[in-house]
């Protein structure tokens, strides 16, 4: 939902970042306001996953230039955990397994860290069990997954549902979902997308990072951005995604060649 007067949540200006001294992001500009759903599309290696990791604060990615303001605050001054507590959420493309750490306990500690920051009361084990059972419905998840270790032995689809469950618990202000659709069959995709749609409000925003149009059939974006060579090459409405579906990314190469980048 586009409202020009809505609060600016994320303001990315001329962002540059490297991995192992290799420049990946080369001047990204993007503004995200409350209530909006953005889709960032592009081929492998275009820099879209790097953008999500940089925003969440992954230590392997080094910011080499530009600024990101999150609700007016310099994002890069904050540790990853601090960003999360303030409402920045990254849904991982490949959620890692953490053997021995109970999923339920992990979700509780995580939820309480966010609640504490928001001045809300900490939930004890019992209160949290009730709380989490409500949220399980959002992603139609079997409570048995709470008893297991974090993501351990989960199928691809179960891992993604667990990500959206975390999103439901943390109630983020800006949710960045990195290839949440990858590895999902159509039923799982609908459940995950349904969860994302339920959680979208006019006060938060979603940044979908995706390869394919099919996720956008389920979640309607307000803006579609096409990334290539570490920058946003073109921005449009949802029709841009449909156009990409039909024409592919060949035009991107031509455009880059014309600009003398590729």
């Amino acid at each position: 939902m586009i409202r020009p007067d809505a609060q600016l949540l994320l303001d990315i200006q001329d962002l540059h970042a490297s991995v192992e001294d290799k420049p990946i992001l080369k001047g990204v500009n993007l503004q995200v306001r409350a209530g909006e759903v953005h889709a960032v599309m592009g081929r492998n290696g275009s820099g879209k996953s790097t953008l999500s990791k940089v925003l969440a604060g992954h230590p392997a990615y080094r910011v080499t230039g530009g600024t990101v303001r999150y609700r007016g605050q310099d994002l890069f001054e904050l540790e990853p955990e601090e960003r999360a507590r303030l409402g920045v959420f990254l849904g991982f493309q490949y959620p890692v397994e953490i053997p021995g750490v109970s999923n339920l306990e992990f979700l509780r500690v995580s939820t309480n860290a966010r609640r504490e920051k928001q001045g809300e009361e900490e939930l004890d084990t019992f209160a949290f069990e009730d709380h989490v059972h409500d949220k399980l419905k959002v992603v139609q998840m079997d409570p048995a997954f709470l008893e297991r270790s974090v993501n351990e032995g989960f199928s691809g689809g179960e891992k993604k549902r667990n990500e959206i469950l975390q999103m439901a618990l943390l109630e983020p202000v800006v949710a960045i979902l990195d290839e949440t659709d990858s590895g999902l069959d159509i039923d799982a995709l609908r459940i995950v997308a349904g969860g994302v749609n339920q959680l979208a409000t006019e006060d938060n925003a979603t940044l979908l990072i995706t390869h394919y149009q099919r996720l956008l059939d389920e979640i309607t974006p307000d803006y579609v951005h096409v990334m290539a060579a570490g920058r946003i090459l073109r921005t449009g409405g949802r029709e841009l995604a449909l156009e990409l579906e039909q024409t592919g990314y060949d035009w991107v190469d031509q455009e880059l060649a014309a600009q003398g980048v590729a």
Binding site: A56, G57, H58, P59, E79, P80, E81, R83, A84, R85, F89, L90, F92, P95, V96, I98, F106, V109, S110, A113, R114, K117, Q166, L170
Partner: peptide, 11 residues
């Protein structure tokens, strides 16, 4: 693994 936990608000 550490980053995953950190990105969920855990120090």
């Amino acid at each position: 693994q550490l980053f995953y936990l950190q990105s969920r608000g855990i120090g």
